[in-house]
Design a protein around this nucleic acid. Structure first.
Lengths: 159, 159
DNA sequence: ATTTTTGCAAATCATTTGCATATAT
DNA sequence: ATATATGCAAATGATTTGCAAAAAT
């Protein structure tokens, strides 16, 4: 009678205790379709009387992130959100409208990284690459013109 | 008698008031060699009795960022920091040791973005690409082995 | 048995906001 | 004159921490 939950399995494999609260957080995470914040999970836990507290949610997410089961995104607006992901695979494209995140395989990013190393003389240690846009579904249901959304131009009325 | 400060000039060009507090913040920003946080500037202002308050520093940085004079980085550890940068140029490689940031010109990044659009069906709106590593100087003064620093492996002792 | 984990509430940290006053235009 | 910006202190929001009790090993 094994553990069918991949998050919990990974936890267990890494030597962490497979506790009920972690199972609960893992379950909440697993059924999310788009990105979510720690506080959203805290809220869900409270509403559904799941009995896991704020600190535990934060700690579980931190742990999941450490194990590569979840990734913390820095959204363009400045906030943070998590998405589930395959371990050791770390680029996502995130829909600005529905929040869905899709994993992106190395489309030449490694090569770019190498090129940058060569050009700058830096030794590259890690990179953060996040793309934001509209997913195919949202493109279909909310078509936008050729003109992409643009930031207010520097010459526009400043107030 | 013009304004020799590029940050202030840009502000002015964009139609914002060229105020003394903003000048002070711009000056602090301009003489930073590596990345800095809003609170570091607040601290400097306090220590040097520059007379600009917390809110003003935050507001000035927000404005500078809007004008593309400064970029807000999301550091790997989760914090934020700012770096000065050329307007409309938005990729940096940041030294993990000294915090210096170097602008990186498009080393094929646009191509990657396109490839991802094609593969995923997303319409890419914006991307965040930040690289972290060791700058040439820090490489020289703190040589590290071929083995890059690695995250604790999943099989390592969890505590 | 022993170690890790939890939950709570309080603490911390970063950032924002209201509003009367001051400043730039 | 008029609009914008400032400073302060208080509010907010997110995340972390201390610690005794509970659960997993």
């Amino acid at each position: 009678m094994g553990n069918p939950d991949p998050l919990m399995t990974a936890l267990d494999d890494a030597g962490y205790y497979a506790t009920e609260p972690r199972r609960v957080v893992a379950a909440m995470v697993a059924q999310r379709e788009s990105h979510f914040t720690a506080l959203e999970l805290v809220g869900e836990a409270k509403q559904r009387h799941l009995g896991v507290g704020r600190a535990t949610v934060f700690r579980a997410l931190e742990l999941f992130e450490e194990l590569g089961l979840v990734e913390r995104l820095d959204l363009p607006a400045g906030g943070h959100a998590y998405v589930v992901c395959e371990p050791a695979h770390h680029h996502h494209i995130v829909c600005q409208r529905c929040g869905r995140a899709t994993e992106v395989d190395d489309c030449g990013i490694e090569g770019v990284s190498k090129a940058i190393e060569d050009r700058t003389g830096y030794l590259v240690d890690s990179h953060r690459i996040e793309l934001f846009g509209l997913c195919p579904d949202c493109r279909a249901s909310q078509p936008i013109s050729n003109e992409r959304r643009r930031r207010p131009s520097a010459t526009a009325d400043p107030h």
